[in-house]
Nucleic acid binder design. Structure first.
Lengths: 252, 252
DNA sequence: CACACTCACTGTTATAGAACTCATTGAAGA
DNA sequence: TCTTCAATGAGTTCTATAACAGTGAGTGTG
């Protein structure tokens, strides 16, 4: 048997087809896929081959397999994984801290040149500017300015961002977040952020710049966060199995 | 066929056996493993089953498979993976920068209390203190002080650390690095490091504290690195497939 | 009614055999 | 001497079949 007729392995084609059906909603999150034997028959392929396709999906965290029960579509915690500032919030909550979000500004206005470049907007295009302050342990720790591309921005501009994360709002608006790239640099607290963070100018901070992309590689959100060095740190764990990256609190 | 006689899957047992042989040096790094057909015969197992075992090893980055050529033991870039400051060097070299290491100090002396605690030494125990400055693009960028536990320290104290990385020296001394944890905080350049880094005091820096562990969870190296914010940044990429973390240069 | 058992259904692991692609090598031909 | 091409040996993908192991609902018994 030839692996295929168009230079792509059979199991990869099947994996791609199933992945498309999952992402398109043909199989809903939490729903069970048809049994392996049934799928293998419908694809005209052996159980072994089908399982190899499922293994691909499992590696991508698209499905969860449970012996004796079935194969289920994984819940869409993609956005959860991607939002480091939300995982920050989660990390801190797990440590017992009370994390709150205050909205300091929200407006649709013309995007500055740097933001326009990041979001690939035409000069003069407008976007939603969202300014938030994250507090925990009763003290402000992160000052964050996010710009959201239109037309997505129009769908989410009226959400209550003290209770709902930006990424949850995006997901509710049907925007699937696929990728994010982030750069973190050390810096000194500037006057504008100092007003919100209640800390002297020139204090050591981490400055995070993050751009988030949809499935078709369109940038949707540009984030600029100023993170107080006295309250936050970056932790990494490296082992043979892989790499983990978390934000941690440095409350005494 | 029962998966095995002792509640462990056959392919897992084979994977564990091969992994042990690789780690023990029975198969040397870079060396080719016997052909799959030969291995499957010697384990008395099908090609499919053997390949499942190899897939495990491949997932763990222990082997590299090349179609038409063979299966090779991966070079021991475990330390490479673990040493973010060495991967920094590699990242920069890939970008065409010339990275150099200068040794500013090397001595066996009594470890300060904080270091002793990190390495789990008894108060008063001595250790190797290694002070290095990393330069690239002709400018000093990182000031790094490493403490190495004895007796490992005695085996590597005479190596030429301008040419050999600390982790290479450790590997040569038979020390297998298994895990590392690192914390990165923003900070201000202190006078001691400022002398080496040729930058004004109070400049924004990243301060990295890393502890490296051997297979038996003994801490062997404690690293404290001061990284100039004007020259270095942290980049992360998040996607469905996983997370990557690299150090990048910010040379204009 | 409560408990244990059976059985059908699920994913999992294994067998054996064959055809495929890719890289290397060495001999034949120009 | 250089080029070409077929043979070889490696990993890769697939077919076909069988048995194992966890789950849970239904069934029977006390």
């Amino acid at each position: 048997m030839t692996p295929d007729a168009g230079h792509e392995a059979r199991y990869r084609a099947i994996a791609a087809d199933l992945a498309a059906k999952i992402r398109s909603g043909h199989y809903a999150p939490g729903e069970a896929l048809p049994p392996q034997r049934e799928l293998s028959a419908s694809y005209g392929v052996t159980l072994m081959t089908l399982r190899q396709a499922l293994r691909e999906l499992s590696d991508e965290r698209l499905i969860v397999q449970q012996p004796g029960r079935g194969t289920f579509v994984a819940p869409p915690h993609l956005a959860y994984q991607l939002d480091s500032l939300r995982s920050l919030v989660d990390d801190l909550r797990k440590q017992g801290h009370d994390v709150r979000t205050a909205v300091a500004g929200r407006a649709v206005r013309r995007a500055p040149a740097r933001i326009a470049a990041e979001l690939r907007l035409r000069p003069g295009d407008s976007a939603l500017r969202l300014e938030r302050v994250r507090e925990f342990a009763g003290r402000p720790a992160v000052h964050q300015v996010s710009w959201v591309r239109r037309p997505v921005a129009d769908q989410i501009r009226d959400r209550d961002f003290t209770a709902v994360s930006l990424y949850t709002a995006l997901a509710d608006a049907g925007v699937t977040v696929a990728q994010a790239s982030e750069v973190v640099r050390p810096g000194l607290l500037d006057p504008a952020a100092a007003r919100h963070l209640n800390e002297p100018q020139g204090s050591p901070v981490l400055v995070s710049t993050r751009i988030t992309y949809t499935l078709d590689a369109t940038p949707v959100v540009s984030d600029h966060a100023t993170i107080l060095g006295s309250m936050m740190e970056i932790r990494t764990e490296r082992a043979a199995t892989g790499l983990s990256l978390t934000w941690g609190a440095t409350i005494p």
